[in-house]
Computed example of a mutant assay.
Amino acid sequence: MKRFLIFLYFISSALTALSSEKGIIDLADYHYNRKEYYYSITESMRYQYLYPRGELYSQSMLITGKSYYKGGDSGRALSVFSECYNRFTDSEAGERALFYSGLIRIDSESYNYAAKNFREYNYVYNNGIFLEESIINLSLVYALAENYDEAGKKIAGYREIFPEGKYIKQAEELSVLIKEAESRPEKSLLGAGLLSAVVPGSGYFYTENYMLGIFSFGTNAALIYGIYDGYKKKKQFQMIFFSVIEFSFYNYSLAGSIKSAHEYNENKDFKKELVLKFKSEF
């Protein structure tokens, strides 16, 4: 009987610890670190239900927002971070929530909103814990939005404020990449279309999409030969058959060349490289 009572005492103590404010937050954080985001959100929301005025409420919101983001729900993450920032502006949690919002906006390619978040961070928290990171990420956002002048100004500002900052090398590298992007010539959509209209596939070569250019040129050439061969042998069915197919491939070559020029000008690979190299993480 005595052993049973001792067992009940320990169970009761464990449940009390898990139900305490810090115990619940620690458990939520434990699940987050193990990438068990569903359980992390569940524990954070349990805390918010049990302790609506708790001292760790803002921390529970941060864990909830990060878990939503890592779990693939950026929309809910932004909603939680926005509420956290508005409710706890004067706390570190509010500061983190605003900065994290900017990072999520980068991932969703909402560059104008990301810039707004980082500018607001720099204004509200001008001596904040993420001041260096916010300036670098703001420079990155302007570069992604192809506003290279503003990106250059922010990098220059970072160098002036933090001449020996921890991101000075990244700032130099970002500056070099921006100059390369500025000097990169754009491809004309009309030019790409006209080239493929004259010689099918040549628009792809113009946009440096060589594999598609070879495929398009070879396919159209083979189909045109099929039409010519049918004409030469006076096989009307062969002529019609290959003409119908060639009409489709020819039009695809025109539209594809224009699309290829558009994608070249978007420079998505360059933007991916920028995000991978310079975007801060949680």
Rank of each mutant, 00 (worst) to 15 (best):
Y51C: 02
P52R: 12
R53V: 09
R53G: 15
G54I: 04
L56S: 08
L56F: 12
L56Q: 10
Y57H: 10
Y57P: 06
Q59Y: 11
S60P: 10
M61I: 11
M61E: 10
L62W: 00
I63M: 02
I63H: 00
T64M: 09
T64R: 11
T64L: 12
T64F: 08
T64P: 04
G65M: 09
G65E: 13
K66R: 07
S67T: 12
Y69R: 05
G71M: 04
G72V: 07
D73T: 03
D73F: 11
D73A: 10
R76P: 03
A77E: 13
L78A: 04
L78Y: 03
F81S: 11
E83G: 14
C84E: 13
C84H: 05
Y85K: 04
Y85H: 13
R87W: 10
F88K: 02
D90S: 04
D90N: 11
S91D: 08
S91Q: 12
E92R: 10
E92M: 06
A93H: 03
A97Y: 14
L98T: 01
F99W: 06
F99L: 01
Y100I: 02
Y100A: 05
Y100K: 01
S101P: 08
S101G: 11
S101T: 04
L103W: 02
R105E: 12
D107R: 14
S108F: 09
S108V: 15
E109Y: 06
E109D: 10
E109L: 14
S110K: 15
Y111V: 06
N112A: 15
Y113A: 08
Y113Q: 12
A114F: 08
A115L: 00
K116E: 15
K116G: 05
K116C: 09
N117D: 15
F118V: 01
F118Y: 12
F118C: 00
R119P: 08
R119S: 13
R119E: 15
E120Y: 02
E120W: 01
Y121H: 10
Y123E: 06
V124I: 14
Y125D: 08
Y125A: 02
G128Y: 01
I129M: 06
I129W: 00
E133L: 07
E133T: 06
E133C: 04
S134P: 03
I135H: 08
N137G: 13
N137R: 05
L138D: 02
L138C: 05
S139Q: 08
L140M: 05
L140T: 04
L140Y: 11
Y142P: 03
A143T: 01
L144I: 06
A145T: 09
E146M: 13
N147V: 12
N147W: 07
N147K: 07
D149I: 06
E150G: 01
E150Q: 08
E150R: 03
A151K: 00
G152V: 02
G152E: 14
K153M: 10
K153P: 00
